[in-house]
């Protein structure tokens, strides 16, 4: 191996810049959030005025109905949106699996909603759902349905948020499932066909089990994104009306920069970090790029 011939310091020279940046920009802030969660401190005031409050912020967090509402909203959003995206995306991939001419153009178009800024996505859909001049009201009007203030009522605002996410992320599931299906060994489906399996049997007993690991990773990645996202909803509703669309990440932002409760916001950050890290570890269990290579 090459490494035997050169100084032991070489790998550390290679990793040093990246490690330093990640330490300063990710690890140190995480440690700071943990520290801040034990203090009552106002932004802009000197650190000496900070008051040690112990676990008060965590107790306040767990006792706050708003926090639980926000968690419930986020969970409902993740379950609903991700379930719809998985079903739609996988169904479409199964149906459109056969390679056709021009698929590259279509795939390019499907990537678009994921590439444009979340803030633009929020803007677009806020406009589409607008009560007085939104194109969606115009469209439903063609069918004789009276215009509605979609984003002003809790139920429809929540549904609007789900619809927007489905629009933006179903293509992701579709592309992942399609890549998985097209990477499958055709001999397997061929064998199933010769054995007389029906189309449905082939799908449920052969194809889906084979691509299951990839679908699980896709599912977990979408769930993680559900907990991470706040920009689309920041522009669309800012969490309202009431708390109808108060996603957890947005809730943290508001606790810190609207209510100015740094301690509670930090405690919430730690909770969010725990949730996302758990999901992230689940991704590693499902598909670990390190372990797979070493076993090859």
């Amino acid at each position: 191996m090459i490494s035997a011939r050169i100084s032991r310091a070489v790998p550390y020279v290679y990793i040093a810049p990246a490690v330093l940046v990640m330490a300063a920009g990710l690890l140190w802030p995480i440690a700071k959030a943990a520290q801040l969660s034990f203090y009552d401190w106002g932004m802009g005031t000197p650190w000496e005025t900070a008051r040690w409050t112990g676990t008060e912020a965590f107790v306040a967090m767990l006792g706050s109905p708003q926090v639980w509402t926000s968690l419930a909203v986020t969970l409902a959003f993740v379950v609903l949106a991700v379930a719809a995206e998985m079903c739609l995306g996988v169904a479409l991939a199964l149906f459109l699996e056969r390679p056709v001419r021009g698929m590259r153009v279509f795939r390019t178009i499907f990537v678009l909603p994921m590439m444009i800024a979340p803030i633009c996505v929020g803007l677009i859909w806020r406009y589409l759902f607008d009560a007085s001049y939104g194109p969606i009201n115009h469209l439903t009007g063609l069918f004789g349905i009276a215009p509605r203030s979609w984003l002003a009522a809790p139920e429809t605002a929540f549904l609007a948020m789900v619809v927007t996410d489905i629009w933006q992320w179903t293509p992701f599931v579709f592309i992942m499932a399609l890549a998985a299906l097209q990477g499958m060994d055709t001999a397997v489906t061929e064998a199933a066909r010769i054995d007389g399996a029906s189309t449905w049997q082939t799908i449920f007993l052969v194809k889906l089990p084979i691509i299951k690991p990839i679908l699980i990773v896709t599912l977990l990645m979408r769930m993680i994104d559900g907990f991470r996202g706040l920009e689309v909803i920041y522009v669309m509703t800012f969490g309202g009306p009431g708390q109808a669309t108060d996603l957890f990440s947005l809730h943290i932002y508001k606790a810190a920069f609207v209510s100015q409760k740094l301690g509670v916001a930090s405690a919430l950050s730690i909770l969010l970090l725990a949730i996302v890290t758990l999901l992230s570890l689940a991704v590693l269990l499902a598909a670990n790029p390190l372990r797979r290579r070493e076993s090859d």
Partner: peptide, 18 residues
Amino acid sequence: LVLRTLPPAVLAVPVFVI
């Protein structure tokens, strides 16, 4: 691998302070 999914909202407060 784990830091890959770090939510920006977690960073917002501490990064602002630091």
